[in-house]
Amino acid sequence: MPSPDEVLAVRTAAVRLTGVSLTYGARGGLLRPRGTRVAALRDIDLEIGAGAFLVIVGPSGCGKSTLLRLIAGFAPPTTGEIAVSGAPVTGPGPDRGVVFQQPRLFPWLSVRRNVEFGLRMAGLPAARRRERAMELLGLVGLADVAGQRPYELSGGMQQRAAIARALAPDPAILLMDEPFAALDALTRERLQEELRRIWQATGKTVLFVTHSVDEAVYLGTRVIVLSRRPGRIVLDQPSELPFAPDPHTHPGYPALRETIATAVRRSASDDPGQDDSGQDASGSDDSG
């Protein structure tokens, strides 16, 4: 388990974003045939230390998923640079595991084979693949449906299977987009604990999107709050709570919760100083 100092010192940046903006529809032709330009992110500078648990909060449509997708390498930013472990991102790779906002399990594979996919790509022999997949499915409470197809599972079960699939190849960086949003309170709590345990045990860097302030406080060694679209960082709050034996009863919990909640409330309301419709034609509107 990394000590708080190690994690918070940002000695080695696992992920570094410099001046990253993304405007959808900017590259007419490839993404869409030059329709509306939507500025989703603007001027994001962010340095995430190896082993950090970064939680991203912000109003719906502010660009949280977009941010994760850029780091995952699914699309290049319109401007700026993204580097992972010092090397510029040129595409997706097994060093960055992704849990999508929708489960996106492969419907032609059984649940177990979905989890095995990354292991198969890594060239693991069948017996070892199976063993590890079953272990992970046990972890997310799906061992009994391993042989079923994804469409036979509920939304929450699918999401848990997707988490197991992303964990399987043991990526150094985990990009998780509202992974627990579809779960009941009990399962959600259990998986939060489990994820915290995995993070502490493996020293993975986790980037985690959520709408739940409590989840952010419980899990994040650092919580950033984004403004309305185009997303900018309006709060960048470090925290030591996840290192505590039980963050929920930590004396700092209420104050931290309040700080984040206030920032979220402010970013969600139409604060005139921060507001930007983001649908300007020029893409260089500096009214804010």
Binding site: R69, A72, G73, F74, G91, P92, G93, P94, R96, G97, V98, F100, R104, F106, F117, G118, M121, A122, R165, A166, A168, P169
Partner: peptide, 8 residues
């Protein structure tokens, strides 16, 4: 994207 992130 998922497949590529899983090492394909």
């Amino acid at each position: 994207n998922a497949a590529r992130s899983l090492g394909a």
